[in-house]
């Protein structure tokens, strides 16, 4: 058997539970109320003609789904943002995990999350490109099965749109996702 390094810190109860609703098929978890889209300042989403932006579309992209409403997109992003929560420096195999139980607080895992779930959204030990790709990977796995595709945008537009993955960015990205379908080839890498 392969023994597992176990620090004393790991021996405290580690329970990860969401504050999300447990109603059936709660993909939308807690009811999400999108802000008035007219109050949002969407960056310029004019489809790019830059070959370098298109070539780097696998790095900087936004999600879009033809026919989705702003409300529906907001709910999808709000739901998927829950999966961005990570615990800094704690990638080792957890020893004890609750399941379907009441939330428990635990050392190192905060019950406060800007995304409405237990867990600290801290990626302090990674930065820059790695942090971006880590979050993009999670959003891709959550959104693409729902029919979202990706389109290339410039790094500047991407930064405005994602706003450091703030909660404000959820509405912005939902607005972009529900906007006109760009005359571009989707990103496939």
């Amino acid at each position: 058997m392969r023994k597992r390094l176990t620090t004393v810190a790991m021996l405290v109860p580690l329970a990860v539970a969401a504050t999300a609703s447990t109603t059936a098929n709660s993909q939308q978890s807690q009811a999400a109320s999108p802000p008035d889209p007219s109050s949002l300042e969407l960056p310029d989403m004019t489809p790019t003609t830059s070959s370098s932006v298109i070539r780097n579309g696998w790095k900087y992209f936004y999600f879009h789904k033809e026919g989705v409403t702003y409300q529906e997109a907001f709910e999808d992003f709000h739901d998927c943002y829950q999966f961005l929560a990570t615990v800094s420096g704690r990638s080792e195999l957890p020893m004890s995990v609750s399941w379907n139980s009441e939330p428990e607080t635990s050392e190192g895992i905060s019950t406060q999350s800007p995304y409405g779930v237990v867990g600290q959204v801290i990626l302090g030990f990674v930065s820059g490109a790695m942090e971006r790709r880590n979050r993009q990977s999670r959003l891709r796995r959550c959104l693409e099965p729902r029919g979202y595709v990706r389109y290339p945008i410039s790094r500047d537009i991407w930064r405005q749109l994602t706003d450091g993955y703030s909660t404000d960015a959820i509405a912005l990205q939902a607005l972009a996702a529900s906007g006109p379908t760009p005359n571009l080839e989707p990103v496939i890498r």
Partner: peptide
């Protein structure tokens, strides 16, 4: 069904 595990390096299904 879906669950949360913030200690995972990545998520998938």
């Amino acid at each position: 069904g879906r669950f949360f595990e913030p200690r995972a390096l990545a998520i998938n299904r």
